[in-house]
């Protein structure tokens, strides 16, 4: 009997009520497990069992005092930041092309953008090993046979390989928000700009780009988050000794089986990721203040 009014509120209510099922789902299947996992960083675990009455901030403090953690975080950060910017630079022309294309061309571009998502990131990372790796890798073979280089380039197992892999793998996350905004933009504004005397290039930078700022920053936040927390690409393309914060979380938890250390690093990884994403979004909102006033 008491469930009927609740159901009615969810189906017909205002404010937060319609979101209740989604919130409940997120709480049970995301927030709870996450909190449990993170909580492991604040207790002592002995042979897979939590030792009672061992709540402590000690592990976190130790991790924050550890120089290595800061160096890993710095690498995670700059790799994610650089690859986000590279993604933007590569994604924008594709999205713009899509917006200019018509009919079948649009469909083709869309399929080309989305289809990599159908293969796993792991497979794509292995593909990059084949392309970049050693003397017999695609890149080196081509350059050598063209006589452009004498010695094979060392790309695999460097920062470059990680950046290239991340950028390619996360490209769709940047292209998709841009596609929507650029394809649906109001072309009259560009006409107005031309009419007021601006060149095509001037119009692009004065009108098209500023108008897409919300989409640019949505894409940047998304790509930054997935790059910052990606542990597959650094492991496979960076090589055995290449590590980032996310790689450490994986290794401590799955390989070393030091769950406490893993959970502490995960706490640091998630909270810093959250902070960076928040900063990106806040900066984007500042640049696009005009957008809020529309609401």
């Amino acid at each position: 009997m008491s469930s009927a009014p609740l159901l009615r509120r969810i189906l017909h209510g205002r404010g937060i009520w319609p979101a209740v099922p989604a919130l409940a789902y997120l709480f049970v299947f995301l927030a709870l497990p996450m909190l449990t996992l993170l909580a492991f960083g604040f207790v002592t675990i002995d042979r897979g069992r939590i030792v009672a009455d061992t709540w402590t901030l000690g592990y976190l403090e130790a991790a924050l005092a550890d120089d290595l953690v800061w160096r890993l975080m710095w690498r995670s950060f700059w790799v994610a930041a650089v690859s986000s910017v590279l993604t933007l630079l590569l994604a924008y022309p594709v999205a713009y092309l899509f917006a200019e294309a018509k009919g079948i061309w649009r469909t083709l571009i869309l399929v080309a953008v989305v289809s990599p998502l159908l293969t796993s990131a792991l497979v794509r990372a292995y593909a990059w090993i084949v392309i970049l790796g050693g003397r017999r890798g695609l890149v080196n073979q081509t350059l050598l046979s063209l006589g452009l280089i004498e010695q094979p380039l060392r790309i695999l197992n460097t920062d470059w390989a990680v950046l290239i892999g991340m950028t390619q793998i996360h490209l769709p996350f940047m292209i998709l928000p841009l596609l929507a905004v650029l394809a649906e933009r109001d072309r009259r504004l560009e006409e107005a700009s031309l009419n007021l005397g601006a060149s095509q290039t001037g119009t692009f930078f004065r009108v098209v780009v500023p108008m897409s700022v919300p989409a640019i920053f949505a894409g940047l936040a998304l790509v930054f988050a997935v790059s910052y927390t990606n542990f597959i690409v650094p492991q496979l393309l960076g090589g055995g000794s290449y590590s980032t914060l996310a790689v450490q979380v994986y290794e401590q938890t799955i390989v070393v089986l030091d769950w406490t250390r893993g959970a502490v690093l995960a706490t640091i990884l998630l909270s810093t990721c959250f902070a960076f994403v928040l900063a990106i979004v806040a900066f984007g909102n500042r640049l696009a203040r005009w957008n809020e006033s529309a609401a």
Binding site: E191, L194, T203, A288
Partner: peptide, 27 residues
């Protein structure tokens, strides 16, 4: 169009939403 020097007031206004009034006029 950008070399024609023909002023045009659009039926749909076509104001730049990302610029304030003064910046629209100053464009």
């Amino acid at each position: 169009p950008n070399r024609r020097q023909v002023g045009y007031v659009f039926q749909s206004y076509a104001l730049f939403p990302h610029l304030d009034v003064a910046a629209n006029v100053a464009y």
